[in-house]
Amino acid sequence: MLTSLYVEGRSWFHRLPVRAKLLALLVLSLALFATQSLYLLAPAFLLCGWLYFSLGLTFRQALARIGFLFFTILVLAAINLFLLPVAEVAALLLRLMALVLFAAAVTATTTIGAFMDEVTFLVKPFERLGLLRAADVSLALGLVLRFVPDIFARYEAIREAHRARGLPIRPLTIIGPLIILTLKDADTIAAAIDARGFRRQ
């Protein structure tokens, strides 16, 4: 049900370590926001576009992932045209699109596992302070992936129950039962986790 946005591939960008890619994203966003020059922003935009579209996604798939973002960005740019000088609007447009393209490229070339390793690394300082445990983050993430299909099945069951009784399907009458039914399982699941000693408590 939840398939990651990772795309199988062996490009040089795929092989780059996650940390390098995330740092590059950070540096790129700082650099792009520091400059107003179209001579820097236009090549940056083209480079990011080339990078993203050369990752092995078909043009359609690639566009489907970022189309809605580009739509919002273009709408905002159209509004900006009435309020700001054209050169400034062009700079804003190129900067934001370059950033979105690069971010989409990072997402498309990094597996969930690689991201999780990085998250574990980033959580470490908090772990030392005793605020959060990296193992808990992974456990919570695993629980979400495990229970989304169950909860969706429950949603469909409630929807069928509505249909069987001839009731209109409204969010209001669905959300209440869905949440109660789901959260009622919390005790059982927590007991099962503790019984297996996953959290060593």
């Binding site: 456990l139 919570a140 229970f147 969706f152 949603y155 869905l178 789901t182 959260l183 927590a190 986790i193």
Partner: peptide, 18 residues
């Protein structure tokens, strides 16, 4: 944080996904 809270957090995030 006890295990029940952790599970509630994860279940609620899953509900938001659904």
């Amino acid at each position: 944080m006890n295990t029940r809270d952790l599970v509630l957090i994860a279940l609620f995030a899953a509900i938001v996904v659904v």
